[in-house]
Design a protein around this nucleic acid. Structure first.
Length: 208
DNA sequence: ACCCTGATGCTCT
DNA sequence: GAGCATCAGGGTG
């Protein structure tokens, strides 16, 4: 942990219910102080996953995969999706509750070159192709993309805490107010009608 | 712009 | 064995 680092403390993650936290996280910075260097981005899109929600991984069952979701708020839950992508969540609410906030998009702030390299490397690995340079807007626009760009790894970060790992969140850089848009979540088969998606209105880095 | 598809592997039934 | 909180590429309009 760096001296003078202003990461959000445990009390922040404990202070709100899941849907409120999903909104409070908007405008905050997600930071990875990795061996490659620092990368960070403003959180511009989140989704809430609640206990009574069939889309929630911890819905009506507790399994080994979702165990981190039952840990303290502020715990990092990373899971593999479609065999080749990962998504990152902030565990919310209370211990043993099983709720979380999915981070869906970032507006890149620091380490943009590193993000580009990581994304192109990931693409090459999964597609076996060399691809064209990835535009700034596409670096972190989507949950799988931002995990690649930020260098987040399930094997490293899953079940760690944002309070004391090299992955953490800091408060908004500017105190400027912003408008939050509420909409239906994306890409779900179950629970598709819940209005649990939050984004910064008119921000071009929001997915879709 | 939209629509469709394939890639790929873990998790739970 | 089915399902999956995705992404990229290629087709069509």
């Amino acid at each position: 942990m760096l001296v003078g680092e202003n990461r959000l403390p445990q009390s922040f993650y404990e202070a709100y219910d899941t849907r409120t936290l999903a909104q409070k996280l908007l405008g905050c910075e997600l930071v990875h102080n990795s061996p490659d260097g620092i990368t960070s981005g403003t959180i511009v899109e989140t989704e809430a996953y609640l206990q009574d929600d069939p889309a929630c991984h911890a819905y009506q069952k507790r399994t080994p995969r979702t165990e981190p979701m039952y840990a303290a708020p502020g715990t990092i839950y990373v899971y593999l999706i479609y065999g080749m992508y990962q998504c990152v969540n902030v565990v919310s609410n209370r211990v043993d509750c099983g709720e979380a906030v999915l981070i869906r998009a970032l507006q890149p702030t620091e380490g943009i070159e590193i993000m580009q390299i990581r994304r192109e490397l990931s693409r090459k690995k999964t597609l076996g192709k060399v691809s064209k340079p990835i535009p700034l807007k596409e670096l972190c626009r989507g949950p799988g993309k931002l995990v690649q760009a930020m260098g987040i790894e399930r094997s490293v970060h899953n079940s760690q805490s944002l309070v004391d790992s090299n992955l953490f969140i800091t408060p908004p850089l500017s105190g400027n107010p912003f408008e939050i848009e509420i909409s239906k979540r994306i890409g779900l088969t179950q629970g598709a009608d819940f209005l649990y998606r939050y984004s910064l209105k008119n921000n071009p880095f929001v997915s879709r």
